[in-house]
Amino acid sequence: MKFLSMHAKFGPVTTALLSASLFVLCVAAYFTASHIRHQENPKDKIMPTIGKMWKGVENTAFKEDRKGEYRLWVDTWASAKRLGYSTLLLVLAVLLGLHMGLYPFFEAVFYRFILFFDKVPALALLPILFIIFGLGELSKVMLILLGVFPTIALDTYLRAKAVPREQIIKGRTLGAGSAKITYGVVLPQIMPDVLNTIRLNFKAMVLFLIAGESLAATAGLGYRIFVVRRYIAMEIIIPYVLWMSLLAFVADLLVRLWIKKRYAWYQAH
């Protein structure tokens, strides 16, 4: 049982096999159950076969719909834009948290408000967002932003607060100004952890995206899932869910690779 030891070490091949094992088991379990259901009822729509799901992918990704569009790619682009805008705006959350952690004025003004706002369920604000911003793109972006902005800001605040005061004092002694200490000393130290927090919130961002698209949208991955559910089109819903998950996984991977490349010291920390 050495492979269960705390000191076990695996080669790349063994690691790859172990990593793939649960995926293989899940796929095998699904298609076994699907095969059994289709033996009992060839018209079963709950667990489509791989052939039916591939047909669903073909119809949405490689065949034009009545509007002359490739539905999967149009939906992907619409959702990606909303998530992209929201992620870019999270820079404001990082800057706010950074300043709250270093400057007493910002902490006194914003900390308790952000702490309270973090407890407000973002989905409860959705009707208000629709009333204020309408049913367009802005309301969906704001929903995603409000859902994760306080969390990112508070996480950045705590990490900035945890930087030893000795470093700040030493920076002052060496003649560094407030801006240099803030952006040249503290921010580079906490940035890898902040990026990790952002990537761990990708799932929450996708959930808010789906919520917004399900209520008011004309395109988007979440929108399409809620449209075809009326027809129990699982051969489209399942590939869409897998596609969304794959995109989130790739985004997470890219952030991890960026951290590894840009902050090589962080891996040894």
Rank of each mutant, 00 (worst) to 15 (best):
K2N: 14
L4Y: 14
S5Q: 07
M6P: 08
F10Y: 14
V13S: 04
T15M: 12
L17W: 10
L18K: 05
A20P: 01
S21F: 15
S21D: 06
L22H: 05
F23H: 06
A29L: 12
A29N: 04
A29P: 00
Y30L: 05
F31E: 09
T32W: 14
A33F: 09
Q39W: 13
Q39C: 12
D44N: 15
I46N: 13
M47V: 07
K52M: 13
K52Q: 14
K52D: 13
W54H: 07
K55M: 12
V57R: 03
E58P: 01
E58G: 01
N59W: 03
N59P: 00
A61Q: 09
E64K: 13
D65A: 03
K67D: 11
E69T: 01
Y70P: 05
R71H: 06
W73P: 07
D75P: 01
D75Q: 03
W77G: 06
A78Y: 04
A80M: 11
T87V: 11
L89R: 01
L90K: 03
V91F: 14
L96K: 02
G97E: 13
L98T: 01
H99E: 13
M100Q: 04
G101Q: 05
G101C: 03
Y103N: 15
Y103Q: 10
Y111M: 08
Y111K: 13
R112N: 15
L115Q: 14
V120Y: 04
P121F: 09
A122S: 11
L123T: 08
A124R: 00
L125V: 03
L125Y: 04
F130E: 11
I131E: 11
G134Q: 07
G136H: 04
E137D: 15
S139L: 05
L143K: 03
V148C: 05
V148N: 05
F149H: 00
T151H: 12
A153N: 07
L154N: 05
L154Q: 07
T156F: 10
L158H: 12
R159A: 14
R159P: 06
A160G: 15
A160H: 08
V163N: 09
K170M: 12
T173Q: 11
A176K: 10
S178R: 12
S178V: 10
S178T: 11
K180R: 14
I181A: 01
T182L: 06
T182P: 00
V185Y: 03
V186R: 03
L187I: 05
Q189R: 14
P192Q: 13
P192E: 14
D193R: 06
V194M: 10
L195R: 02
L207W: 09
F208A: 01
A211M: 08
A216N: 07
A216F: 05
A217W: 02
T218S: 11
I225G: 01
R229G: 03
Y231G: 05
Y231A: 13
I232S: 13
M234N: 03
E235M: 04
I238E: 09
V241I: 15
L246W: 10
L246H: 04
L247I: 15
A248D: 07
A248P: 00
V250C: 07
V250Y: 08
L254E: 10
R256K: 15
W258T: 09
R262P: 01
Y263R: 06
A264T: 04
Q267Y: 09
